[in-house]
Design a protein around this nucleic acid. Structure first.
Lengths: 345, 345
DNA sequence: CTGAAAGCGCTTACAG
DNA sequence: CTGAAAGCGCTTACAG
C-alpha cells in the first residue's frame, strides 16, 4: 500500500483521461464507458486516493446545501443545548456552503409540526432534522419528503415506520439501567423503598427507561423495592401534588426516580415537606430548572444525554452525506449518557 | 449588521485594491501603507467578513503544517484513547495539510523524553504536543523550542515555568471532589471509614486529587472518615500487598479511594480476600485493566477524564492556531470529567 | 508599497 | 462518452 497524497489530477494522468472523467467515475455520475470507469476506480484504489474535503467544500459553495431543523424547544429548557449544537454545526459548516433553517414549536401538536414541515419544504431544503412526534400523520408526511429526495434524520426522539436515514439520541433503556445502578450504589445492599414518577405511560422513551430500570434492579439490586409508578405528565404542579401525596402515603420512602419532566415540582415539594436530601431523588437531564436543586443537594444525581450532540451531529452527518455520498455507519447513533452530581457541575 | 457572505474579492473591489493587498491587511503581513490597511480592515468589519476555512485549508496545502506528539504511552493502557484522539485529528486535518509525527516512550525518563524532543526538532516541526515530565531540564528544553518559534501544548499533565501555549487535560482538584461526592452518595449520611491509595506524593496531579477530595468531604460529607493515606507508586503488586495489609489492619473499612495506578492489584486483593463489593472501591480512569472489575462490581465507580479529547484537541488547536493565527481562548482547557458505573459501559 | 497571476483539489456547465 | 475551461476563496512568489 503506497501511502501518498494523490489528487484527481494524478489519477487522471495515470489513467490517461481528463479530470472531469475521473470525477464522473469516482462519483458514479454515469455517462461514462464502464471499462474506463473501472480502470479509474482501480487506479484510485491502488494509489490510496482520498478525496480532499477542503477542495470539496470549496467547490460545494457553488450549490449550497440547505438543511431544515424542527424542534419542540419553545418553553423547554432541555432544548437550549440542542440548539447550541445546531448553531455550532451551522457555524462550522457555513464555510462549506451549509445553511441551516431552524424552526421551533411549543409543545407537541401534530398540526403545528406538519405546518412547519410544509414551511421548510417551501424553502427548498435537501435535508431535515426533526424531533418528531411519534404519530402516523407525521410518519406519512416524512415518508413523502423522503420519496421526494429530502433526507431525514430524527433527533432526541425517534419515529416508527419511516425511512429516516438515522436516529441520533439517547439509548433510553440504558439510561434507565444507569439510574438503577446509581440507586443500587446508594442502597449498598440495604433494602430501599422507592417510587417511580414517569412522564406519561404513552411516551415510548419514558417506558423504555422504566424497562431499563427494572432490568438492572432484577439483575443486580434485589434489595430495591419499587412501591409504585405515577405519572407527572411532565407538569411541575402535578409533580408537586403527587410528591406531597406520595410522602404522605409511604412513610418509609427512601428514594424517587423521575424518568421525565416535572422535576421542579417534586424538588419544591421535598423542600417544603422537609424531606429534601432525606428522600433521595434521581432524575434525567440537567436544565436551568433542575440545576439549582442539584447544587443544593435536593437531587442526588441526574443522568444526561448530551443534548449538544443531538443538535450538532445530525447536521454534521447530513453535511457529510451530501458532500461525499456516504451513508451513516448505523441507522441509529446513541449520544453519550453521563451522570451528573453536585461536584461535577 | 449586514449578514452576508463576503469574500476577499468583494473586499478588494470595495476598497479599490487587489486581493493580495487585502490579504496583507487582514493577516497583518506588513509591507502595506497603514491608511490602506485601516480602510481594508474597516470594510471587512463592516461587511462582517469571515475568512473561509475551506479555501484557507486548500491553499495551506502548499506549506503543510507538521506537528510532533510525545506521549509516555508504551505499556500504559490509559494512553490508547489519547492516541485514538491524535489519529482522529490527523485524519480530519490531513486534508488541510496537517501531518502528525507521533513518538512514544515507556515510563518517565527525563533523558528519553529529551531525546524524543530533539528527534522531532530534526523533523522540522512547527508545533509540539507533549505529556511532559514536570522537571526543570524539560522545561528549559521546551522554552528553547518556544523561542525558536515552535508552539507547545501540554496534554494530560502540565509543566511549570514554561511558555507553553495551553494545557489540555483534567482538572485534578475537581476530579477529587467528584470522588468525594460519589462516596458521600454511598455513605448517605452514615459514618464511613476509608483509606486513600495515592500513586506518589511527589506527583502533583495525585496530590491535587487528594486536595479536592478533602475539600468536598469537609464541605458536604462530615461522616466520611479518612483513616490513612498510602502510596502504590502506580504498581500493581505494591497495590496488592498494600491492600492486603490494609484490610488486615482496618477491620471496619468501608471504602478505598485510589487516586492513581495499581488498580488491578487492589482489585485482585479485594477479590482474593473476599472483600470485593463489601469494601467499596472508587478509582480514576477506565483502562482495559480496570474495566472487567467495573463490570463485575469490584469497582463501584470510576472517574474518567476524556482521554480521546486530550489527544484530539491539542492537534485541533494547533491547526487552528497556524491556520488563522488565533491563540486559544484560555491557557488551559479542562477536558470533561465523567463518572462511569457498570451500567454505563 | 501594490498588483497580476498561478495554484491548492475539487465540481460543473458547455462543447463536441 | 469525453475534454477543456472556469470557478469556489484563499495564499504566495514574482514583478514593478
Amino acid at each position: 500500500m503506497v501511502i501518498s497524497v494523490t489528487s484527481i489530477k494524478e489519477i487522471a494522468a495515470l489513467a490517461g483521461v481528463s479530470r472531469g472523467t475521473v470525477d464522473r467515475a469516482l462519483n458514479n455520475r454515469g455517462g461514462i464507458k464502464s471499462e474506463v470507469a473501472d480502470k479509474i476506480r482501480r487506479i484510485a484504489a491502488e494509489t490510496g486516493y482520498k478525496t480532499n474535503r477542503a477542495a470539496l467544500g470549496l467547490a460545494a459553495r457553488k450549490n449550497p446545501i440547505r438543511i431544515g431543523v424542527i424542534l419542540p424547544s419553545e418553553g423547554n429548557a432541555f432544548f437550549e443545548d440542542v440548539i447550541g449544537g445546531v448553531q455550532a454545526a451551522e457555524k462550522e459548516f457555513d464555510d462549506f456552503g451549509v445553511t441551516v433553517l431552524l424552526r421551533t414549536m411549543r409543545g407537541y401538536s401534530v398540526d403545528d409540526q406538519l405546518k412547519l414541515i410544509d414551511e421548510l419544504c417551501g424553502e427548498d431544503i435537501q435535508g431535515l432534522v426533526i424531533a418528531p412526534i411519534n404519530e402516523k400523520k407525521i410518519a406519512h408526511r416524512l415518508n413523502r419528503l423522503i420519496r421526494e429526495g429530502i433526507y431525514v434524520i430524527t433527533s432526541n426522539t425517534d419515529i416508527e415506520k419511516t425511512d429516516r436515514l438515522c436516529y441520533v439520541g439517547q439509548d433510553y433503556v440504558k439510561s434507565g439501567e444507569i439510574a438503577a445502578g446509581l440507586m443500587g450504589l446508594v442502597a449498598d445492599g440495604r433494602p430501599l423503598n422507592m417510587v417511580i414518577f414517569t412522564g406519561s405511560i404513552h411516551v415510548l422513551g419514558h417506558n423504555q427507561r422504566i424497562t431499563g430500570f427494572n432490568l438492572a434492579v432484577k439483575q443486580h439490586y434485589p434489595a430495591i423495592q419499587i412501591l409504585d409508578v405515577f405519572e407527572t405528565l411532565d407538569q411541575t404542579d402535578t409533580a408537586y401534588d403527587l410528591t406531597m401525596r406520595t410522602i404522605e402515603k409511604y412513610k418509609d420512602l427512601d428514594a424517587i426516580y423521575m424518568t421525565a419532566g416535572g422535576v421542579g415540582g417534586t424538588c419544591q415539594a421535598l423542600a417544603d415537606s422537609g424531606y429534601a436530601g432525606k428522600i433521595k431523588l434521581f432524575t434525567h437531564d440537567c436544565t436551568s430548572e433542575s440545576k439549582p436543586y442539584l447544587q443544593n443537594g435536593v437531587i442526588s444525581a441526574t443522568i444526561c444525554q448530551d443534548p449538544f450532540q443531538q443538535g450538532y451531529l445530525p447536521i454534521k452527518m447530513l453535511f457529510s452525506f451530501f458532500l461525499d455520498k456516504q451513508a451513516p455507519e448505523s441507522d441509529h447513533i446513541y449520544t453519550k449518557t453521563d451522570i451528573l452530581i453536585r461536584e461535577i457541575l
